[in-house]
């Protein structure tokens, strides 16, 4: 699905963040040469298409008491991935659940992210997941340091990420 030039322009503008003024969309619309109404319609369309996943705030969870994030990796037989993935996704403490490719020396194909207030709680929760899904080959990888957390900037450079 290719985006129109207008859509790309709107994406570029929206990823800079919403100004904290009474009529923020009017400010952005001015930069884009659109009316406030036109911009609000474009945003609604991008949401309908699922291009905008959410229009709201990204909050730092460390500051809200969610100190630990544990990535739990699971080795699940191919035939059970669908069933197990759905079981994991049903837990409200699981923020993300992905099936990923395996690699030589890396047999784990299901990934879940757990957020908790301490390590013990993450471990206990992983145990509950294991029991619910009947999977016992798993590992917890705790975060010991956050080296980077940023928001992606799209459509900015033709050759994004030259490392500069």
């Amino acid at each position: 699905m290719a985006l129109s030039e207008l859509e790309k322009k709107v994406v570029r503008e929206l990823q800079e963040g919403l100004p904290l003024v009474s009529r923020p969309f009017a400010v952005l619309a001015g930069r884009l040469g659109l009316s406030e109404d036109q911009l609000l319609r474009e945003i609604a369309l991008l949401k309908e298409k699922g291009i905008i996943r959410r229009f709201g705030a990204a909050v730092r969870h460390q500051d809200l008491g969610f100190v630990y994030n544990a990535m739990v990796v699971w080795s699940v037989p191919e035939t059970r991935v669908d069933e197990v993935g759905k079981v994991f996704a049903g837990f409200k403490e699981v923020s993300h659940c992905y099936e990923r490719a395996t690699a030589p020396g890396w047999p784990y194909n299901l990934f879940t992210m757990l957020h908790g207030t301490d390590e013990g709680r993450c471990r206990e929760l992983a145990g509950r997941l294991a029991l619910a899904a009947g999977v016992d080959d798993y590992r917890l990888l705790y975060s010991t340091a956050e080296l980077k957390k940023s928001s992606m900037k799209y459509f900015l450079e033709p050759d994004e990420g030259t490392g500069g």
Binding site: V11, L14, E16, K49, G50, I52, R53, A58, R60
Partner: peptide, 24 residues
């Protein structure tokens, strides 16, 4: 909101995109 953003409790306010639907 300004204060929460200055203190970086709010990392960003605005659109959160689905990178795949953007072709990434």
């Amino acid at each position: 909101l300004s204060r929460l953003r200055e203190r970086r409790v709010i990392r960003r306010l605005g659109a959160i995109f689905d990178s795949r639907r953007l072709g990434y």
